[in-house]
Design a protein around this nucleic acid. Structure first.
Lengths: 150, 150
DNA sequence: GCATCGTCTGATCAGTTGTTCATACGTGGA
DNA sequence: TCCACGTATGAACAACTGATCAGACGATGC
């Protein structure tokens, strides 16, 4: 099955440009259309980086805390997230590097806040829906007091 | 970290309920407020699972392809995402388990589509903003000048 | 029936990631 | 000044994850 397998090229014949490495393609038009609008690799990786940062329960609790409180210091973030202060510091380092949070120092305290409206929207959207969709993914849990995010 | 460290309980004295394990807390009111509205651990982990699924470039390209095409078979997904067909299959397995995609078989083909409006919104929101915000994330960090926002 | 195709799956391996421990930095108070 | 505090950092470790390879399954065509 090499490349000569044109048995289902009923749609278009301009395959060579798309079929870069012997991959079989069924619906060539659709594949071409998708490729045309596919974000650049850099954009995809950027977005993936953001989602990854949101994809760890500890960081997610940190960010949720900041979403609710507006501003918190490291030790309070440790208290609200249940992480050790060291873990919080390490996590905040990553979030800082991605410009997701910003820090402002007062005295020997460091106060963090969300610094990215984009992430705030993703967070808010995610939190809202997750609470409506309990019992879906893997949560056999009984009822929970469904907070209203306002 | 002695347990008797109540040195800064200047705001309220009802610490015992919050301070479960010798953690220092600065703004107890705010911490209590955040804890009150913090989603349940199960909800947090559910949401984190979703974000993790979106947080890998390969899967993100798969999902973007489905968002654009509506429906694609495995080999076409391999073509649009640049992954091997085996990797696609493994990835789709995870996405299926999380009810993010659904599959419909016709003959020996398997056609996948997005099956979660929640995820579709997150995807769409993410993709929209990422394309406006290129040149941001991957920036090599200008020295880390702790910008005092605004 | 047999061979081929598209897809799925398990095992293995390498790379990544979060946590912990120990320590270092800068600040503020005695 | 010295010490306690809040935070930041590096190293080491365990756990997880994605890619690859090999093989299996069901469906189709001869």
């Amino acid at each position: 099955m090499g490349t000569g397998d044109a048995s289902r090229s009923e749609k278009s014949a301009a395959v060579s440009a798309l079929d870069t490495c012997g991959e079989r393609v069924v619906d060539q038009e659709r594949v071409a259309a998708v490729r045309a609008v596919m974000p650049s690799p850099a954009d995809v990786e950027d977005l993936a980086r953001v989602f990854v940062l949101l994809g760890e329960p500890g960081r997610l609790r940190l960010l949720t805390s900041l979403l609710e409180a507006g501003e918190l210091c490291v030790c309070d973030l440790a208290a609200t997230s249940g992480l050790s202060e060291s873990s919080v510091s390490h996590a905040l380092r990553l979030l800082r590097a991605a410009r997701v949070v910003s820090v402002q120092r007062r005295g020997r305290m460091a106060y963090y806040r969300l610094d990215d409206g984009h992430v705030r929207m993703l967070l808010d959207l995610g939190l809202t829906h997750t609470q409506h969709t309990s019992t879906l993914t893997t949560a056999p849990e009984p009822g929970r007091p469904e907070r209203t995010t306002s």
